[in-house]
């Protein structure tokens, strides 16, 4: 399904797009299995239409929205962003979506809304990974942003990639994209948006707090306990050119977002 984006994404100079087949064939979406090729193989039956999004918490427009109604008033934009996985690989991806701040403004959060919590669909009949006895994650997957992060103009709610509707393995029909944070923050197949006063739970942070922080900002100076974050492999890499590049602070978006974390100890708030 072709999407009509009102604006073209700005090309990142000197950084090639990761080809569509790799963007849609190399995914971490544990609801569909642990291997990178599992989501593509197992997610094709995901029913994404109709799709409801539950809006709740500290806002004046709570309710159960049809995804089309939530998106309808807004123009779609293309955004070309780096995606940096916490496993130390990265891609460059042309997303299509709506800036989250536009959606949030319409939902009219109250003064008590300090955070936004997102939740992925929980449906073991469609998501075999949620049935796994050996999983260390608690379903449903959930993630959160501080309000100023959610309102930042870079933060996108994506509905498409490469000009087409999102395929299920990439988080169809509606996912978050926060380009300066590790990929796991960019939660997929969202069914709930909740405005909260307290910091919400975040699945990876809850599973292994010493490895995954709530903020999860890309930071080459703060290593994951089991591997270095100083470099990354830009995919696709070829065998005799591993494509190891230096990881940049806030994934190269420091000019736009560093001010959000002024005065915070990023070793503590990783």
């Amino acid at each position: 399904e072709k999407l009509r984006a009102a604006s073209k994404g700005e090309v990142i100079e000197g950084e090639d797009l990761t080809p569509y087949r790799h963007v849609t064939g190399h995914n971490n979406f544990y609801e569909f299995g642990l291997a990178k090729e599992d989501p593509k193989a197992k997610a094709q039956g995901l029913k994404t239409d109709p799709w409801k999004v539950e809006v709740s918490g500290e806002c004046s427009k709570p309710g159960s929205y049809n995804l089309e109604d939530l998106l309808k008033p807004h123009e779609l934009e293309e955004r070309i962003y780096r995606l940096r996985c916490v496993e130390a690989w990265s891609m460059v991806i042309p997303w299509v979506g709506v800036p989250l701040n536009k959606l949030i403004s319409r939902l009219e959060p109250t003064g008590n809304a300090k955070f936004v919590e997102f939740t992925t669909l929980h449906d073991p009949s469609q998501m075999p990974g949620q049935k796994s006895f050996f999983s260390t994650l608690n379903w449903p997957y959930s993630e959160g942003l501080r309000m100023d992060e959610a309102m930042h103009p870079l933060t996108l709610m994506a509905v498409g990639v490469y000009g087409d509707a999102l395929p299920p393995q990439n988080g169809a029909p509606f996912r978050l994209v926060v380009p300066w944070k590790y990929g796991f923050k960019s939660i997929k197949s969202i069914v709930s948006i909740r405005f909260t006063e307290q910091m919400p739970r975040a699945t990876w942070n809850e599973t292994a707090p010493s490895e995954y922080g709530f903020y999860a900002n890309v930071n080459p100076q703060v290593d994951h306990p089991r591997w270095s974050q100083a470099t990354e492999r830009r995919l696709p890499s070829s065998l005799f050119n591993p494509n190891q590049i230096d990881t940049r602070m806030f994934n190269g978006y420091a000019d736009q977002v560093a001010h959000l974390y002024q005065g915070m100890d990023l070793r503590k708030w990783y």
Binding site: T18, H22, G25, H26, K36, W89, S237, L239
Partner: peptide, 15 residues
Amino acid sequence: AAYSLDLGADPAQTI
């Protein structure tokens, strides 16, 4: 598989 470029986006990790 490597010769026929059948190792996906991250052939290094796969191998």
